[in-house]
Design a protein around this nucleic acid. Structure first.
Lengths: 247, 247
DNA sequence: ACCATTCAGGTACCATGTACGCAAATGGAA
DNA sequence: TTCCATTTGCGTACATGGTACCTGAATGGT
């Protein structure tokens, strides 16, 4: 074997269609990944253990290692599968703002559908084909402008940073509640609530207090809040580059 | 006991100075946290296991549970200890741009000193006293301006999103290499390198290629790159609010 | 001197990733 | 048809993790 294990999973494609001797494979990377994603969606990544996935497939844990070198590689595959759900036009439309808005909404939808996605994505530097596809579309939104590629990368980075962080904020407490086993409502009321109240009542952080008490956006629906922040990022991009249409 | 375990760690202060009967405590939360941080700094969070920390302190693993309810709470304490290393003036100087630059640099320094900090910070919604202190300083930078608190929160969020993401990018591959046990140089050359080269040579993502090949900022020193991105964020904030001094 | 109270920490249990090895299946060659 | 090299299926086993439980030691008030 050449370069076994010491390379990215994307360099070790599925054992391509052989026609030689030997037992036929009973599973596939895709099938295993799909199962892992399904479990993770329903019960969190920590529930998607090798044994659990195998059991769901009606087999033993060690069978999976015929298809996936290490558990970490499975994460890369899961990320890529989740990103594959992001549907985008083939190319940029010419309306950079519209394209990026579409992109952001799609990423948000994927992030909510797979609450583990953003956490995995930001915890490991991965470059699966679908992430590259999405990234390429983002970069393409600025096609036609006279921007230097570094500026484009910077803007796309700003947008990504916002989208990811916003999704994390939106999921954050929900996920934490699920992880600790409490139902979300009780978690907010009994776990974090009393502490925040104590902090507020102590008066030690007056501006934090105002950001909690006087906030208007806090009472907005999640999508609205997301759109507000997104618009701010897009406005910022427009404001930084006079050559772009302001809006 | 009232509300045991079902509350944030910040609601369960250290067993305050008693004077009743019973054996004297031989350790302290702070001491345990310090040890955990030291191990995590040197060998990664995954090395800071309960057994390892205890062994470092010359005791048994279960002794730690007299001071810390769950391992997750230890993470909160570690985050707070790392954030306590961020040194800031008592109040805003009046120069919002200077204050935020100072803040960003301090956070970056803390993030590099404790390569696990940002990952933990963004993986769990925690609100320790030192995080609140730092956040309050950030909000305070806009004191004197006529901005609504929601806008201030939004800007501070933008800044935080950038700083955290930039630190993650700066550490990213380094950490991944350490996690997999390879030395960083070999990781980049043998693990990720060949794949990126393959992607580039395939020509499937032309804009990604340009962002890799034609980048000028990629060859900058890390601090320079950080400062560039930071300036872009601050420029964006200034551009979005005409009432602020542009620079 | 006694005792309720508190801490130290050993033992034990369960879950996890995964190395290893052998049995079972498979298709080409003899 | 008969073998056999090859590949998959997967049980067993081990190291490592968090942590529940329990016993014994230390301690200060009565």
């Amino acid at each position: 074997m050449a370069g076994e294990g010491a390379t990215s999973i994307w360099m070790q494609p599925e054992g391509h269609e052989r026609s030689g001797p030997g037992r036929r494979p009973g599973f596939s990377r895709r099938q295993i990944t799909r199962t892992a994603v399904r479990i993770a969606d329903a019960e969190g990544v920590e529930a998607a253990t090798m044994r659990r996935i195998a059991s769901e497939l009606g087999t033993g844990a060690m069978s999976l290692y015929r298809y996936i070198p290490r558990r970490d590689d499975l994460f890369d595959l899961m990320i890529d599968l989740a990103m594959s759900g992001i549907e985008l036009p083939d190319g940029p439309s010419g309306d950079w703002r519209g394209d990026l808005t579409l992109l952001a909404r799609q990423v948000r939808a994927a992030g909510l559908r797979h609450p583990w996605l953003i956490a995995l994505l930001t915890s490991r530097p991965t470059l699966g084909p679908n992430l590259l596809r999405v990234h390429e579309f983002a970069l393409g939104a600025f096609k036609g402008t006279e921007l230097h590629i570094d500026d484009v990368t910077g803007f796309v980075g700003m947008l990504n940073d916002y989208v990811h962080s916003a999704i994390r904020r939106e999921i954050g407490w929900l996920e934490e509640a699920r992880r600790t086993g409490l139902d979300p409502e009780r978690w907010k009321r009994d776990y974090m609530g009393p502490y925040v109240r104590q902090v507020v009542e102590s008066g030690a952080f007056p501006l934090f207090n105002r950001s909690v008490l006087d906030s208007r956006t806090a009472h907005l629906a999640p999508e609205e809040r997301f759109r507000h922040g997104l618009d701010r990022i897009l406005d910022a991009i427009a404001a930084l580059t006079p050559s772009l249409s302001p809006r």
